[in-house]
Measured scan of single mutants.
Amino acid sequence: RTAFSSEQLARLKREFNENRYLTERRRQQLSSELGLNEAQIKIWFQNKRA
């Protein structure tokens, strides 16, 4: 289980509010910017949509 920092969570929530689905390219960008792997971001979005 991933423990996200408050900064990472704030960024993910802001991104989710703008778009509930990420393109592969956007997921790669977020992964690089947040220091998370793409799978972690993908799962976070899946869980948030559920």
Rank of each mutant, 00 (worst) to 15 (best):
E33F: 03
S31A: 14
Q40L: 14
R25Y: 11
Y21I: 10
Q28S: 07
Q28I: 10
G35F: 04
Y21N: 09
L12T: 00
K48Q: 15
E7T: 08
E7R: 04
S5Y: 02
A39D: 15
Q28F: 07
S6M: 09
R14T: 11
E18R: 09
E33Q: 05
R27D: 01
A39S: 11
E38N: 04
Q46P: 03
K48W: 10
N19D: 09
R25N: 13
R11W: 04
N47M: 13
Q46C: 10
S31G: 06
R49S: 08
F4K: 03
F45Q: 01
Q46V: 07
F16D: 01
L22N: 02
W44Y: 09
R26Y: 05
E33W: 03
R14E: 13
L9P: 00
S6W: 08
N37L: 12
R25T: 14
E7L: 07
S31T: 05
Y21H: 10
N19Q: 05
Q8L: 04
E33R: 03
R27G: 10
E15Q: 03
F4W: 05
N37I: 06
N47E: 13
L9E: 13
F16H: 02
R25M: 12
I41F: 01
E38Q: 06
S6T: 11
T2G: 13
K48S: 13
N47G: 06
R26K: 11
Q8N: 03
S32L: 14
F4A: 04
A3N: 11
Q28G: 06
Q8W: 02
L22A: 03
L34K: 01
R20W: 09
R49L: 14
S32T: 12
E33I: 06
R25Q: 14
Q40R: 06
N19S: 07
Q29L: 10
W44L: 03
K42M: 15
L22G: 02
F4L: 13
N47W: 13
A50I: 10
Q8D: 06
T2A: 10
R27T: 15
N19C: 14
E24R: 14
L9D: 05
Y21Q: 07
G35W: 02
K48P: 04
I41T: 02
L34T: 08
N37C: 08
L30Q: 01
S31R: 03
R14G: 05
Q8M: 05
S31M: 05
S31H: 02
E18M: 09
T2D: 13
K42D: 15
S6G: 08
N17I: 09
Q29I: 11
L30N: 00
N37M: 08
R1G: 14
T23Q: 04
Q40P: 02
S32M: 15
K13R: 12
R1Q: 14
R11G: 07
N37F: 07
S5I: 03
N17D: 12
E18D: 08
R14D: 11
L22C: 05
N17T: 08
N19I: 03
S31W: 02
A39I: 14
R49A: 12
L30V: 02
K42R: 11
S31C: 09
N17K: 13
F16I: 03
Q40H: 08
F16W: 10
N47P: 02
E7V: 07
E15Y: 04
K42Y: 12
A39K: 11
Q8Y: 01
R26M: 08
Q28N: 07
E7G: 05
W44V: 02
A50F: 08
R20I: 09
R26A: 07
N47S: 10
E7F: 07
S5R: 04
F4S: 03
K13L: 15
F45K: 00
N19E: 04
R11E: 06
Y21W: 11
F45G: 00
E15K: 02
Q28C: 09
G35H: 06
L34S: 03
Q29A: 11
L30D: 00
I43Y: 10
N37E: 14
A10W: 04
E33G: 02
R1C: 15
E18V: 07
L9H: 05
G35P: 00
L9I: 12
N47K: 10
R49K: 06
R1M: 14
K48A: 15
S31E: 05
T2F: 12
R20G: 09
R20C: 12
E15R: 02
L30I: 08
L12I: 02
R1T: 14
